[in-house]
Simulated scan of single mutants.
Amino acid sequence: MTELRVLVGCETSGVVRRAFAACGHDVWSCDILPAEDGSNRHIVCDIRDILDDGWDLLAVMHPPCTRLCNSGVRWLSGPPKNAPNEATLAEKQAWPVLSVAERRAIMWRLLDEGAALFSACWNAPVDRVAIENPVMHRHAKERIVNYQKPAQTVQPWWFGNRAFKATSFYLRGLPPLTETDRLDPPKPGTDEHKKWSIVHRASPRPDRWRLRSRTYPGIAGAMADQWGGAALSAAAALNDVLEVAS
């Protein structure tokens, strides 16, 4: 095997897809939205529809995580004033007049839906799986089938990108990433520190999620090089064993 068949799920930017393509792999991205770069190697669909299509490596970069992460747990007991983005149109329209109990029921349903998507990807029939997601609260963990804690949490500045954005990876069949170009982060309170904190300082706007979900090129390159390399090495070793056995 000289190339992998790779699916990069829940990605519209194409950053990770292009990194794997640069390493010579047969890589596709998918999302319910079109690719920003207009690539013909992007599938518009629910990722669950194509998990069984014979992938060698599955990298799910930005699955909806708002209901799963620690920062979102508070909304399960005290629903937000405004309807969440994931709510249906009917729920959004009715939100102002819904009771607290009705709003709470919607929040718990959205948690169930988010956990179901994560579970489907985590338990996909693929030997090598990486899912990017923040650390989860206990209610989310209880709903994930075969839950395991994240294998590692990395920062863009470990890979040569001048930015702060803690990124956790849940890994199955893949090694943790090794830093490639560790930078010295600026001191808090400085202008440079503010520049590195652009993800956290982004003002509310309709497309803020794009900025906050985008994978940094240094991390994407490490994924393609290290995970792709590990997968090819494992495949070569298995092939050697099979040849000896035959």
Score class of each variant (00 low, 15 high):
L4Y: 06
R5V: 01
V8H: 08
G9V: 03
C10H: 08
E11K: 03
T12W: 13
S13K: 05
G14W: 05
G14T: 04
V15P: 02
R17P: 06
A19E: 10
A21I: 02
A22I: 00
C23I: 00
G24R: 06
D26I: 00
I32K: 15
L33Q: 15
L33G: 10
D37F: 12
D37Q: 14
G38V: 03
R41K: 13
V44N: 14
I47N: 13
R48N: 13
D49P: 03
I50D: 15
D52H: 14
G54E: 10
L58N: 09
M61W: 05
H62M: 09
H62N: 15
H62C: 13
P63E: 13
P63G: 10
T66R: 13
R67H: 15
R67S: 15
C69V: 01
N70H: 11
G72V: 02
W75M: 12
P79C: 07
N82H: 09
A83R: 01
P84L: 03
N85M: 06
K92H: 05
Q93W: 01
W95H: 12
V97P: 05
L98T: 02
E102C: 01
R104N: 11
W108S: 04
W108R: 10
W108C: 02
R109F: 04
L111P: 15
D112T: 04
A115C: 14
A116P: 14
F118P: 11
A120N: 15
A120T: 11
D127A: 12
V129W: 15
V129G: 14
A130S: 15
A130M: 14
E132C: 02
E132T: 00
E132S: 08
N133M: 13
M136Y: 10
H137N: 06
R143D: 13
V145F: 10
Q148M: 11
K149T: 08
A151D: 04
A151C: 03
Q155Y: 01
W157M: 01
W158R: 05
G160R: 02
N161T: 01
R162V: 00
R162E: 12
R162Y: 06
K165I: 01
T167N: 08
S168I: 00
T178M: 06
E179T: 00
E179R: 02
T180Q: 07
L183M: 03
K187D: 11
D191T: 09
W196H: 05
S197D: 12
I198N: 15
R201Y: 11
S203H: 10
D207P: 07
R208V: 03
S213K: 12
Y216T: 02
P217S: 05
G221N: 09
A222V: 00
M223G: 03
A224Q: 06
D225E: 09
W227F: 08
G228A: 02
S233R: 08
E243P: 00
A245G: 09
S246F: 12
